[in-house]
Design a protein around this nucleic acid. Sequence first.
DNA 1: AAAGAACTCAACCGCGATTCT
DNA 2: TAGAATCGCGGTTGAGTTCTT
Length: 236
Amino acid sequence: MASTRETRTSMVGMEQATRKGPWTEQEDLQLVCYVSLFGHRRWDFIAKISGLKRTGKSCRLRWVNYLHPGLKHGRMAPEEEHLILELHSKWGNKWSQIAGRLPGRTDNEIKNYWRTHMRKLAQESKKNLLSSSPSSSSTSSASLSIETSINRMENEEEVKVKGYPMDQLWNEIVNSDSNSAMSFKQYKAMEYSPLWEYCVESVWKVDDNEPNIIPCVSDLLVSNFQNGIVLESTNK
DNA sequence: AAAGAACTCAACCGCGATTCT
DNA sequence: TAGAATCGCGGTTGAGTTCTT
C-alpha cells in the first residue's frame, strides 16, 4: 500500500484534509492512547480530539480490525476454519455473530477468509463439473460442510423473509462470550500489540471523571517520538 | 528473470439500527 | 416524538504479495 489517498472537505473559513488509506504507526499510537482514555465509543469525538485527520468511522474500523488487544493475526487454524464453515452453514453471512464465537478474529477477517474460500470452491466445482461424472462422490466432511454452506447461501432469501426464531436469538445472546463488557483486568491479561505497551499503566486507571489526563498522554507521545523510540511495525 | 494471474487483506462505502437531544 | 448524530454491519474495492507460466 504505497499511495495515500486524501480527500479534501472545505469548511467554513478553513480547509481540513481528511486522511484516507493505510494508517501510519504514529496514527495507530495516537488512536490506541485516546481509546484507552475514552473507551471504544464516541468515535467521532475521539477522531476530533486526537487530532487524527480521520473520520470516526475510520478510527473505529482501525481499532476493531487491527489495534484491539487480543486480536490474532495470521492464518486460520484448522479448527477455526471448521468452525467458520459450521457457523456459516447455521447463520449465513452474519460475520459479526460468527466472529463472536472465534476469539481474536474479526468479522472482516472471517469475511475475507470466506470470500477466498468460496472463490476456491467455485473454481474447484467448475473443474469437477467439467471433468467428472455426476455419480462420482468421495466427499470429505469439509466439503460436506461447504456444500451445506452453499445451500445456506442459496436459501438466504428465505431466511430474510422468515427471520430467526426469538428463542434461537436469545440463546445466542445468553451463550455468547461478549467482549463488550470486558473489564480492564481482562484486557490487561490479554496479549498486547506492540503499540499497546506504550500506553502507560496509569492510563488504564483513568476514569471518565479525569479528563485532565490528556496533556499527560500527549506529553508521553511527544517524548517517545523525541527520544527516537521506534516501534516495531504491526503492519506486515 | 519477467510478466501476468491469483490471492490476501486493510480500508472504504452505503445503509439500517440505535442513541441522543 | 421527531430529527440528528453516531454506531455497527455487510458488501466491495484495490494495492501489495505470492504463485505460475
